[in-house]
Amino acid sequence: MTTRNRRRTRLSASALLALALATAGVPALTTPAAAAPGAVAKTDRLGMGLVGFDAKVAEAHGYRVVTLPDGSQSSVPADKATAATEGRYVPEHGVLKPGSSMSTNSYGAATGECGSSWVGLDPRGGGRATLTTGMTLVQASGGPWDIHWHVDISDNGGHSTQNYDEYDGYYSGLGLSWAASARTLNLTRGWANATVTWGSFTITEAGWLCYSYSPTTSTTIT
């Protein structure tokens, strides 16, 4: 078993569910073209919610997953772990309430417990559009570590999925934000939608499991 596969076996049930999402065909990629006259780029942004923790990833980066006095769980700097369990240190972010499977207090907002995610679709003419997507996380998360991201594309020609998967710190050191490389898609003229799927998530350096609230955008392909 490879290191990559061992990482997958350590994930929570919710994370494993995301990795098991069925994938569809990928639209053909072409060289980016100039924007079509009158074309309108559309971008949507929604938050990201905390669903759990990966203790091994947290420990590898100097954090520890602890249980707070009220039964909540959090990942805190290792040197503050004892104080957190005793109530002398109260983390402001990254707290999962007892009995909860997701921090939904900000569901539907542009910024959630983990930060925000976005997707954009920019018509370029000739039946093409440029797809962009990414996330910006809050400071306490430590930034993205593993990324498992999927964008569903729907247009008059049917449905497909664009997948972005990186493992074991590929984006480490780039700060709190990740933006996928822009992809130019060959689509069918008319309406088109781009949606970050509900199963899209990241494991952060602090061991947070953060899911996108699934932003979606629509435009007209020319």
Results as ranks from 00 to 15, higher is better:
residue 169 G to Y: 01
residue 166 E to F: 15
residue 119 V to I: 09
residue 156 N to Q: 14
residue 151 V to L: 07
residue 118 W to R: 09
residue 159 H to W: 15
residue 128 R to C: 04
residue 113 E to S: 07
residue 129 A to L: 01
residue 162 Q to H: 04
residue 120 G to A: 12
residue 153 I to Q: 00
residue 170 Y to L: 12
residue 144 P to R: 10
residue 116 S to V: 10
residue 141 S to C: 10
residue 136 T to F: 12
residue 162 Q to V: 14
residue 130 T to E: 12
residue 140 A to H: 08
residue 138 V to C: 01
residue 126 G to M: 05
residue 114 C to Q: 03
residue 134 G to V: 09
residue 143 G to Y: 03
residue 135 M to K: 11
residue 138 V to W: 11
residue 157 G to K: 03
residue 170 Y to R: 04
residue 123 P to H: 08
residue 137 L to S: 04
residue 142 G to K: 03
residue 129 A to T: 06
residue 144 P to L: 06
residue 157 G to T: 08
residue 136 T to I: 04
residue 128 R to P: 07
residue 149 W to E: 05
residue 138 V to H: 04
residue 125 G to R: 05
residue 166 E to K: 07
residue 170 Y to I: 13
residue 155 D to Q: 00
residue 137 L to Y: 04
residue 146 D to M: 01
residue 121 L to K: 01
residue 132 T to A: 08
residue 118 W to H: 12
residue 139 Q to E: 15
residue 147 I to Y: 02
residue 137 L to E: 03
residue 140 A to Q: 02
residue 131 L to W: 05
residue 161 T to S: 15
residue 155 D to R: 05
residue 121 L to R: 03
residue 125 G to D: 02
residue 137 L to G: 11
residue 167 Y to G: 11
residue 131 L to P: 00
residue 149 W to M: 01
residue 141 S to V: 11
residue 148 H to K: 14
residue 113 E to F: 01
residue 155 D to A: 05
residue 149 W to K: 01
residue 166 E to R: 10
residue 143 G to P: 11
residue 141 S to K: 10
residue 170 Y to K: 12
residue 156 N to M: 15
residue 114 C to L: 05
residue 129 A to W: 00
residue 137 L to C: 02
residue 114 C to S: 10
residue 124 R to V: 08
residue 166 E to M: 03
residue 170 Y to G: 08
residue 154 S to G: 14
residue 130 T to K: 14
residue 151 V to W: 00
residue 119 V to T: 07
residue 159 H to I: 14
residue 164 Y to Q: 13
residue 166 E to S: 15
residue 121 L to S: 11
residue 121 L to G: 07
residue 122 D to M: 15
residue 133 T to D: 11
residue 114 C to A: 13
residue 134 G to T: 13
residue 121 L to V: 09
residue 135 M to H: 06
residue 167 Y to R: 08
residue 144 P to T: 05
residue 152 D to P: 15
residue 136 T to S: 12
residue 144 P to E: 09
residue 160 S to T: 03
residue 152 D to Q: 10
residue 127 G to N: 01
residue 141 S to N: 08
residue 137 L to K: 14
residue 112 G to P: 06
residue 131 L to Y: 00
residue 148 H to I: 08
residue 117 S to Y: 05
residue 133 T to S: 09
residue 116 S to R: 13
residue 138 V to F: 06
residue 154 S to D: 13
residue 121 L to Q: 01
residue 119 V to E: 00
residue 112 G to M: 03
residue 120 G to H: 06
residue 150 H to V: 14
residue 160 S to A: 06
residue 130 T to Q: 13
residue 116 S to T: 08
residue 161 T to D: 03
residue 119 V to Q: 08
residue 148 H to S: 15
residue 151 V to F: 02
residue 115 G to S: 00
residue 125 G to P: 07
residue 117 S to R: 10
residue 165 D to I: 15
residue 126 G to H: 09
residue 135 M to N: 14
residue 117 S to W: 00
residue 147 I to N: 09
residue 122 D to N: 07
residue 147 I to D: 08
residue 120 G to E: 13
residue 135 M to V: 08
